[in-house]
Amino acid sequence: MQLVVARIGRAHGIKGEVTVEVRTDEPELRLGPGAVLATEPAETGPLTIETGRVHSGRLLLRFEGVRDRSGAEALRNTLLIAEVDPDELPEDPEEFYDHQLMDLDVVLADGTEVGRITEITHLPSQDLFIVERPDGSEVMIPFVEEIVGEIDLEEQRVVITPPPGLIDESEAVVATSREEEGEEGDESAPSGDGTR
């Protein structure tokens, strides 16, 4: 199974290093020196990692054969893809690989259907489940212990306890209309007639 583990960002310095946006919880395993990664677009790779280091909180990689800034810039926005055994599991039982969570049903504690996980976004502060609801809309669920109470891979479901407003559509609509009115500068003025 192929999984995206990083996206190449800007060149760093003049010796071929690049910044990378890490998309794996195990960068030391997937992005270590000697790792050979497929790429998207495919014609850019495969790429072999020569060196890696952390600089100002960002991972910097250098690939074999890339020796200057222009070579590094040519790799910008390339996705790095690792081959992963689909049966491989993280060492920590509380951790999961993205492919284990994709397409799981998301339900409330009382069994009410919320939707299905279609994407997982990794942010610096936390991970997010992108959940497609039965009506086709999407909702973002923070993957944090306070909200995600249970992940049952056998039952193919995730049980959540969302705070008020997180998945309530009417709350989202009210917030959106308030935001738009705020942009007009006067929340009390009627809309559409141009008068104040």
Rank of each mutant, 00 (worst) to 15 (best):
Q2L: 03
Q2A: 00
I8A: 07
G9N: 09
R10D: 15
I14Y: 12
K15T: 15
K15S: 14
G16F: 10
E17T: 10
V18I: 08
V18T: 07
R23I: 00
E26N: 11
E28N: 10
E28F: 10
E28D: 13
R30T: 08
L31D: 01
L31V: 03
L31S: 01
L31P: 02
P33N: 08
G34A: 08
A38D: 11
T39H: 01
E40K: 04
E40G: 06
P41A: 05
P41H: 03
P41K: 06
E43L: 13
T44F: 12
G45F: 03
L47K: 06
I49E: 04
I49A: 07
I49M: 04
R53F: 14
H55I: 14
R62N: 14
E64W: 09
G65P: 10
V66A: 06
R69N: 09
S70L: 14
G71Y: 06
A72T: 03
E73I: 12
E73N: 10
E73W: 10
A74S: 15
L75V: 08
N77E: 13
T78P: 05
L79Y: 01
L79I: 00
L80Q: 01
I81D: 01
E83K: 11
D85N: 14
D85H: 08
P86D: 06
D87A: 15
D87M: 14
E88H: 10
P90M: 07
P90D: 09
E91Y: 03
D92F: 05
D92H: 05
P93H: 09
P93I: 08
P93V: 08
E94M: 12
E94W: 11
E95W: 12
E95R: 15
D98R: 10
L101I: 11
L101E: 08
M102D: 03
D103W: 12
L104G: 02
V106G: 07
V107D: 06
A109Q: 14
A109D: 13
D110T: 04
D110C: 09
D110A: 09
D110M: 06
T112G: 11
E113S: 12
V114G: 07
G115F: 05
I117C: 05
E119C: 00
H122F: 13
H122E: 09
L123P: 07
L123C: 11
L123I: 07
P124D: 10
P124L: 02
S125P: 05
I130K: 13
E132P: 00
E132Q: 13
P134H: 06
D135I: 10
S137H: 11
M140T: 14
F143H: 13
E145F: 10
E146N: 04
V148I: 06
V148A: 09
V148P: 02
I151D: 03
I151E: 02
R157I: 02
I160H: 08
P164Y: 06
G165S: 04
E169L: 13
E169R: 15
S170F: 11
E171Y: 13
E171A: 14
E171C: 04
V173M: 11
V173A: 12
V174W: 10
S177V: 15
R178N: 11
E179T: 13
E179F: 15
E180V: 15
G182I: 11
G182N: 13
E184R: 15
E187A: 14
A189V: 06
P190F: 08
G192E: 12
D193Q: 04
